[in-house]
């Protein structure tokens, strides 16, 4: 039996059942929490693709989240509030920003690369903070949730949950295909030994640039969804702390596995929410838990699947 296909299948099926379970509880709250978790799972997965497959740690991933969110906000303001249109705008915008900045960042390696992604993320953050036309730091409220191909299906929280789940599942399938493709294999080889790859006649830079663009595009979709979830956008979506959170989710889940990133995001957000309902001092509990996972190594995916 092919476990590689079965396990994610079960996982997504389980996630599809969440809205049914939520009907017995406080539905809008549970759906809001679960949808936010799915959106961050998508963002974490986009980071995982760069990190696990391409070996590139982006410390500016939240910038793409913000770009997607602001694309949605601007379109919504001028009457273009359709999810497909918003995603269709956010994807090229983020990809373009990723290509332009990564062309510079990728010259640097290791921690230098990490910090230069941070630099570009911060520049975008400060740009939106100072942009009074869009509310600056206070953010901007969207009048309503986006429409989907002209229908108002997404107005229902449950439908929106399924839209987020669909985006996550499609993203997963897409990235899974890419990782297994020739492109993905070259990328993985670059992570292990760029020199040898170059000797084989591949230019690492181009492959890494493409990986950055793909990752940014996917993360921007998460941003579009995040904007529509609460009909609200603010620069708080793109602080460096958010980029850090995404790295933590990814590493918590387990580096190298797309499912691990999903698991990490869900676990981190749900555990934070859960702990904070019982204590104001959630850091005293979440902090040591992260330390323990780190000490054990390989993240939660290591615990669940027993290795990469």
């Amino acid at each position: 039996m092919n476990w590689r296909a079965v396990v994610p299948g079960f996982g997504f099926a389980a996630l599809a059942l969440v809205p049914l379970a939520a009907r017995w509880g406080p539905e809008a709250y549970a759906l809001n929490l679960a949808t936010r978790a799915l959106i961050f799972a998508l963002a974490a997965m986009s980071l995982q693709f760069m990190l696990g497959c391409g070996g590139l740690v982006s410390f500016g991933q939240a910038a793409y989240l913000g770009l997607g969110a602001y694309a949605a906000a601007i379109l919504a303001r001028y009457g273009g509030g359709d999810l497909l249109l918003e995603a269709g705008t956010a994807i090229p915008a983020a990809a373009l920003f990723a290509v332009a900045t990564s062309a510079i960042s990728l010259r640097a390696k290791g921690v230098y690369y990490i910090m230069s992604t941070l630099a570009f993320g911060q520049m975008l953050y400060f740009f939106f903070v100072s942009l009074s036309a869009l509310g600056g730091d206070d953010g901007v409220t969207l009048d309503a949730r986006a429409r989907l191909a002209g229908t108002d299906w997404l107005a229902s929280d449950r439908a929106f949950y399924y839209a987020a789940l669909a985006a996550l599942a499609l993203g997963y399938l897409l990235l899974d295909r890419i990782v297994g493709s020739r492109f993905g294999r070259v990328l993985g080889a670059i992570r292990q030994n760029p020199l040898r790859v170059r000797a084989l006649g591949f230019e690492p830079f181009r492959y890494q640039l493409a990986a950055c663009a793909i990752s940014a595009a996917l993360c921007a979709v998460a941003g579009v969804l995040l904007a529509n979830l609460n009909s609200f956008v603010s620069p708080a979506f793109m602080t460096w702390q958010r980029s850090g959170d995404l790295i933590v989710m990814t590493v918590l889940g387990g580096v190298g596995s797309l499912g691990g990133a999903i698991l990490g995001a869900l676990a981190y957000l749900l555990a934070s929410e859960l702990v904070s309902t019982y204590t104001e001092h959630s850091g005293l509990w979440i902090g040591p838990a992260l330390v323990l996972v780190a000490l054990r190594g390989r993240g939660l995916a290591g615990l669940v699947w027993g290795g990469r």
Partner: peptide, 16 residues
């Protein structure tokens, strides 16, 4: 990345 995760957890703990 494990070091990042652990020291990030420490920040949460120490701040709180």
């Amino acid at each position: 990345l494990d070091q990042i995760l652990a020291t990030f957890g420490l920040i949460l703990f120490i701040d709180e």
